[in-house]
């Protein structure tokens, strides 16, 4: 096995997360492995409750204390984050791994100016003076396309539109030039034309800084245009992972295919019947010895109901978790 240059920036291996509840252990993540290299974007796609955000929070060390986390490792730039305490995590989180969440208003402090919030991270993490931080804050706002940055720096979050706020949050995230940016539904709360602008901005910044990015989204359309690889999550597992084009063109896992089939498309005529996935996602408690999608799957056979499908690895860096994969 080669190291250094070849080793991925982030390498999560066999990660499981459980939350003890009155009804038993809720299995929020099960045997999740992902890796991504510098300058690449991994899309994580799935419906509510599939575990996308839990995965992001686990990497960042932001899970509540009651969470039971097991993994082989969560390697980031050669360091195993799983073994780091919260003190050791602090210089990494926000500086080397940054994040952008869905609702910019919850990421911003409503009673502090944009400028002071932007400067804070740089003062804390980079140890620069306030004057330097303020000057950089202005540059950052320009870079993320905030209009009239000199004025914005004095303003409070409520004085900005949703799109402008999200640009400020992105500016805060990239202020310390992170190696990895985790963006959790960064454009879900934005209008479609603003969404296109923010996604283009993220992509441009990523290329400039050779930053790796995890883009979490429920929208396969967003994932299609802005990722190199997509991991599809269902009920806490990655059920399929493949280079973006392959995943969209020749999905192997029936859930991926069903998800693709249920999206209305602009090139479909009006009133077309969409394919639906019967039933709804279930919450999994404890260990289940079956495919988590089995109950809703049209290709289900006997084995799906009593044996957990192993991860199959095929050519071209694809994996899937299914007993009856779709053969292209």
């Amino acid at each position: 096995m080669k190291h250094d240059e070849e080793a991925p920036l982030l390498d999560v291996s066999e990660l499981s997360v459980r939350f003890p509840t009155a009804g038993g252990d809720l299995s929020a993540l099960d045997d999740v492995s992902v890796a991504l290299g510098r300058g690449t974007t991994l899309g994580i796609v799935g419906e509510s409750g599939s575990g996308k955000s839990i995965l992001a929070r686990t990497i960042l060390g932001l899970l509540p204390r009651k969470a039971r986390i097991t993994s082989r490792h969560i390697n980031f730039a050669g360091e195993n984050l799983a073994t780091l305490g919260s003190a050791a995590m602090r210089p990494i989180r926000g500086r080397r791994i940054a994040m952008v969440f869905q609702d910019p208003m919850t990421s911003l402090n409503p009673v502090r100016t944009i400028g002071s919030q932007l400067a804070e991270g740089m003062i804390t993490h980079l140890g620069v003076s306030r004057a330097v931080a303020n000057r950089r804050a202005l540059d950052l706002l320009k870079r993320v396309g905030v209009t009239a940055p000199e004025r914005r720096i004095e303003q409070y979050p409520h004085e900005l539109s949703g799109g402008m706020r999200q640009r400020v949050v992105i500016a805060m995230a990239i202020a310390c030039e992170p190696e990895l940016l985790i963006a959790d539904e960064p454009t879900t709360a934005l209008d479609v034309t603003v969404q296109a602008e923010v996604l283009a901005l993220l992509r441009g910044l990523q290329q400039e800084q050779h930053m790796a990015m995890i883009l979490i989204t429920h929208d396969l359309g967003v994932a299609a245009g802005y990722t190199d690889e997509i991991a599809v999550m269902y009920a806490g597992q990655i059920v399929e992972r493949a280079p973006t084009r392959d995943l969209l063109r020749t999905p192997r896992m029936p859930y991926t295919q069903a998800l693709l089939g249920s999206i209305p498309r602009l090139d479909m005529p009006a009133h077309v019947r969409l394919s639906v996935i019967p039933g709804r996602p279930t919450t999994i408690y404890g260990d289940v010895e079956q495919c988590r999608f089995a109950q809703r799957c049209e290709l289900r056979t006997e084995i799906c109901l009593h044996k957990k499908p192993a991860l199959s690895v095929i050519d071209g860096g694809r994996i899937y978790r299914c007993w009856n994969p779709i053969v292209p």
């Binding site: 479609v192 034309t193 969404q195 296109a196 602008e197 996604l199 283009a200 929208d219 396969l220 359309g221 967003v222 994932a223 299609a224 245009g225 802005y226 973006t244 084009r245 969209l248 063109r249 693709l260 999206i263 498309r265 602009l266």
Partner: peptide, 17 residues
């Protein structure tokens, strides 16, 4: 219409307006 992202690898990604 141009701004709508499409789940198709052959459709170019939306140009920001």
């Amino acid at each position: 219409i141009r701004a709508v992202p499409v789940a198709d690898p052959d459709v170019p990604r939306p140009e920001p307006p």
